[in-house]
């Protein structure tokens, strides 16, 4: 099983995440797309780790996951407080800085 297949799959998943960020306006879904991109990166990490026979790739996946968890906690807290103020989480409707 060659590495290319995994990297192609990873590239496709990453692209879907990018397209999602471009075409959707719901903050929660944009957020999910970012998670999707991080996951695509994880897949590439693990695949290359296997190809090189090194453990490091798997380690970086943990760091990515830790960062993703922190990011989600903060991001969702922001979304909740934005929703309380504005009653919307459409990113185009919350484009002014005035609280």
């Amino acid at each position: 099983m060659s590495l290319e297949y995994y990297l192609i799959l990873s590239a496709l998943l990453f692209t879907i995440g990018v397209i999602g960020v471009l075409i959707r306006r719901n903050a929660i879904i944009i957020f999910m797309c970012i998670e999707l991109m991080l996951n695509a990166a994880n897949l590439a990490f693990v695949a290359i780790s296997r190809s090189l026979g090194q453990v490091e790739g798997q380690l970086f996946v943990f760091f990515v996951m830790a960062v993703a968890a922190a990011e989600v906690a903060i991001g969702l807290a922001i979304i909740v407080s934005v929703f309380k103020h504005r009653e919307t989480i459409n990113v185009d409707e919350v484009n002014s800085l005035k609280g």
């Binding site: 306006r25 919307t88 989480i89 185009d92």
Partner: peptide
Amino acid sequence: LNLGTLSEKGAL
């Protein structure tokens, strides 16, 4: 937040 299908106003 009981988010239903939200407006996609401003979407491409």
